[in-house]
Design a protein around this nucleic acid. Structure first.
Lengths: 202, 202
DNA sequence: TATTGATTTAAACTAGATTTTAAACAACTG
DNA sequence: CAGTTGTTTAAAATCTAGTTTAAATCAATA
């Protein structure tokens, strides 16, 4: 009963890494077993099937990585401060785990059946509260009237897309991983500035 | 010799569609054969292997879809006009074939060995000439000094990312395909405005 | 210590995929 | 017309994947 959680966790962790690195379809159960250092059949013993294991991992990744961000969006900060915090936290999160974006991109197209679960992800690009805030401040004249749906898409595009094409950026600009991370840090200021500028009259 | 090209082309076309719809790994040679209405072995006769066929298709897709865009970037239009044309042409191209973005995203992470071939794609986000133009106009004071590498990333992020998460946007906003296309058309003006605004002092 | 249930193992099974082979066919060439 | 070449077919070989089985091991406890 002690080794239980241990083995189950080892499978879960190994599979998570492999799924994100190589993609679900190019990862075999044998790969997982070998990486986790366990017997082939144990994957089925604990998770019944590969697809099941995938579901568990997917759900977990969503939960783990959206919590803080949603909280920021729904907080009662002012718009400028909120955007600053959000961009900052989102980019930090992705820097810690740069494979999240390509992984989710792949899943969106691989498993469209699971699209409902993914609404959680899509909330990342704008909750009701945040949306309302933009409309309200537009009416109040603090910012110019802005269509929230375009604003959301702008925001997550600017934040996440570089991670989606990370290998390309690194290769093209002959960057090291560190160079890339610096580039991304630069973008924090850059994106925030861009978004705020675009909301102000001028 | 007449039917040659015919069969080869049928395989090529069927595979292209399937690869883009379901992804390379979830498309079997049997799927391709059946869609193309040909015998299973013919794929190997013409292309030697599935991976080979994939290479051919990939190269072709890159060539077909980058030509016009690169031409715009390297033309001698003024910056504003150039950006306007580029955004317009790029979005039109992707609207015609909305699966291109997810396909390329998948490939970038699936086949990192082929990353060199992909430099062609990465040129999409900025040629030497275009880059120089931004620096020059910055020095001249026509626009404010702008780091081309960030500007490129901004530009392609804003243009392509919505296509990368198309199913999510459609589902979340309860859109029809047509709604989505309208949304994208709106973005043409929106993105151009945003990019130009961000280049001007204010 | 014997029993029980959970865990682990090696091996087998099943299904499906890619690739190969060898023979049949058609069209053209000398 | 015979033969060569390129094309197509059906079948088989090969390989790899996910899953299942049944026996072995282990740990806890009665």
């Amino acid at each position: 009963m002690a080794k239980n959680k241990n083995t189950e966790q080892k499978i879960f962790d190994a599979a998570t890494e492999l799924f994100m690195e190589k993609g679900v379809d190019r990862t075999s159960v044998r790969d997982i077993a070998s990486k986790a250092g366990i017997n082939l059949a144990l994957m089925n013993y604990y998770f019944r099937s590969k697809e099941n294991l995938f579901d568990a991992i997917f759900t977990n990744l969503v939960k783990e990585n959206t919590k803080d961000l949603l909280q920021i969006l729904d907080s009662d900060l002012g718009l400028e401060e909120k955007i600053r915090k959000y961009v900052d936290a989102y980019i930090d999160m992705l820097t810690t785990n740069p494979l999240l974006v390509p992984f989710f991109m792949a899943i969106i197209h691989r498993s469209q059946e699971k699209i409902t679960q993914m609404k959680v992800i899509s909330n990342l690009y704008g909750t009701e509260i945040f949306s309302q805030q933009i409309v309200d401040e537009g009416k109040a004249g603090t910012i110019r009237r802005t269509d929230p749906s375009h604003f959301f898409v702008d925001m997550i595009s600017l934040i996440t897309f570089p991670f989606a094409i990370r290998p390309l950026i690194i290769d093209r600009n002959e960057m090291s991983e560190e160079d890339f991370n610096n580039f991304i840090v630069e973008r924090k200021e850059h994106i925030t500035g861009l978004l705020l500028k675009c909301m102000k009259e001028c």
